[in-house]
Structures are given as C-alpha cells and as structure tokens.
C-alpha cells in the first residue's frame, strides 16, 4: 500500500502537469481545452526532430516549447478569438477539432511510427521510497509541477497581470473599458497554457517508452481532465492535488489483487467513481472555491 501511494504521487504528477494548462485556460476563459494534449505532442515531435538532427538536448527542449507556444498562439488566433463570443460549447467542440486536426497533421507529416526520446536526466535510481526507485526524470516532473502550481497560484493572487486575466474572464467588457487589451491577455493565456502542455509532453515522453501521433491526448488527457475537475477547475494547486489523487486511486486499484485479476478496466472505473463522488458531494472540486463551480466567463453573462 505504501508503494502504491508513492507510485500514485509519482504518476499523478504527470497528470497534474497537463491539468495545470487545462485549469489555466478554464480559469481565464471558461473553456474546456481539448487541444491541450496536442500542444504537448507537438512539443515532443519538435524535441525529437531537433534532437535527431543533432541539436543538443537542452536546445531541442527549448525548440519543443517554442513549437508548443506557436501552436497555442495559432489556436488562439484562428480558432478561439473568432469564436470567443460564441457559446462555450462551441469552443469546446472547436478545441476538440483542433486536437483531431493536430493528430491528423502529425500522422501526415510524421507518419504513424513509434518513436522514442531520451530523458533529460538519465539516472534511474536517484532515491528509493518504500522500495520504489524514483528516477531523476520523475523527480523533475514532480518538482516542475509543484513549482508551477505554486507560481500559478501566486500569479493569480498577487500580480496585476493575473488579476487582469481573472477580470477578463469574469467581465470582458469591463476589463477592456479599464484599458486592458483582451486580445493580448487571451494570447498570453493560451501561449502560457500551450507551454505548460509542451512541458508536460516533453517531460513525460521519455517515461512512456515511446510516442506517436496523438501521444499526450491518448495517454494523459483523460486523467488530466479528471485531475482538473477533481481538484477544482479554478484552482491551480487543485490540479496538483487532483493529479496525485487520480494517480493514487489508479495505483492502489492495480495493487489490489481483487481488481487487477478479476475486474477489467478497474483503475478507470475507480477513478470515474471517485470523480462522480467528488462532484456529488463537493461539486466545486477538492480545492475549488464554492463560486468556482461556474465558469467565470459564463457567470458574467
């Protein structure tokens, strides 16, 4: 059981990293961003392409993040901004469309092929917790998640830019009347979310053993969405907590002989049941404020 808890924290951190970008977009614009995973996949492809061409790993990582940033900005400019006045459901479907388009483009340009990238940090047994070896790459994921969740929470609570983003999400007209550019803020939000997605993809791809078109969407988007909802869609630290809760629920389920041997798909079922329970008894999520149940932009309407 202790090992299961450690594994849950380690694996859940990866989900939390993707969930951060989901929460950021939702918090600032009220959109469930189904393209978040593909920002990560684009970054991984760019990292792989650059590193395979002989670019040093660190530079290739930056190029990957740049590719994610570019895909986020393109999505914002050509999909989100033209539809920003449309109902949120329309934007939800539009981001799902972006995701499908990106997977198609990855298939077209990169072909369906299993590829692999080396980890940024190679040591596999940096530390052992209850007999479970935690690698440097896993520690990097955890540290990045914690740092970003704390920084994100501080950004919204303590900076003017953060307040402006929140203001835009709650009342775009009033925010613009205060002289704040809604376009620039929207660009900032989507660019940041895309970089978070890229970071999640780049750090998790080496742990996955291989990647292909749609890698992050297929492997992490559902757990990340679940983590974001569990933690509270308006809370960046909630994404961290939600990711870990999902990871722990899955690992404890797998560790139980009853489930692993006799119930097909048990981890997903348990996570789903957990999600339903949390939404029933605490609809705002584990760390979300009571008012956080509603999407900010929709509240303003």
């Amino acid at each position: 059981m202790r090992q299961a808890l450690v594994i849950g924290v380690v694996a859940g951190s990866g989900y939390g990293l993707i969930a951060l970008g989901l929460v950021l977009v939702y918090k600032s614009s009220g959109i469930f961003n189904f393209a978040q995973g593909e920002f990560g996949t684009v970054a991984v492809f760019a990292l792989w392409g650059a590193h395979s061409a002989g670019v040093p790993y660190g530079v290739a990582m930056l190029l990957g993040l740049g590719a994610a940033l570019a895909s986020g900005l393109v999505t914002e400019r050509f999909v989100v901004r033209p539809l920003f006045a449309a109902p949120r459901v329309t934007l939800l479907v539009a981001t799902a469309g972006v995701s499908l388009f990106a997977i198609g483009a990855e298939l077209w340009l990169g072909h369906s092929q299993l590829r692999f990238v080396a980890p940024a940090l190679g040591r596999l047994d940096r530390m052992s917790v209850f007999g479970f070896h935690v690698s440097d790459q896993r520690l990097l994921v955890i540290a990045t998640l914690v740092a970003l969740a704390v920084a994100g929470a501080a950004f919204f609570a303590r900076t003017n830019l953060g307040l402006a983003v929140l203001g835009l999400s709650q009342n775009p007209l009033a925010t613009e009347l205060m002289g704040i550019s809604a376009e620039r803020l929207s660009r900032f939000t989507w660019g940041t979310a895309a970089v978070l997605g890229g970071l999640g993809g780049i750090l998790s791809a080496p742990l996955a053993g291989g990647f292909g078109p749609g890698f992050v969407t297929l492997s992490s988007l559902i757990p990340a969405f679940t983590a974001a909802v569990l933690g509270g869609m308006n809370s960046l630290p909630g994404a961290l907590v939600g990711g870990i809760v999902v990871g722990v629920a899955e690992s404890v389920t797998v560790s139980s002989p009853l489930f692993s041997e006799h119930v097909p798909g048990a981890p997903s079922v348990v996570v789903f049941a957990l999600l339903v329970a949390v939404l029933t008894f605490r609809p705002q999520g584990l760390l979300g404020p009571r008012s956080g149940l509603a999407a900010p932009a929709e509240r303003a309407r």
Binding site: I7, G8, F132
Partner: peptide, 17 residues
C-alpha cells in the same frame, strides 16, 4: 493480472512494481 488496453502511467508503474 490484466492491464487496460490503454493502460495509464500509474497502472503500468504499479504493474511493474
């Protein structure tokens, strides 16, 4: 044991352990 067709990271880490 049986693992999911799209087994998650946590599932596969736990299974390996």
């Amino acid at each position: 044991s049986r693992i999911g067709k799209y087994a998650s990271d946590a599932e596969l880490l736990s299974e390996a352990q």
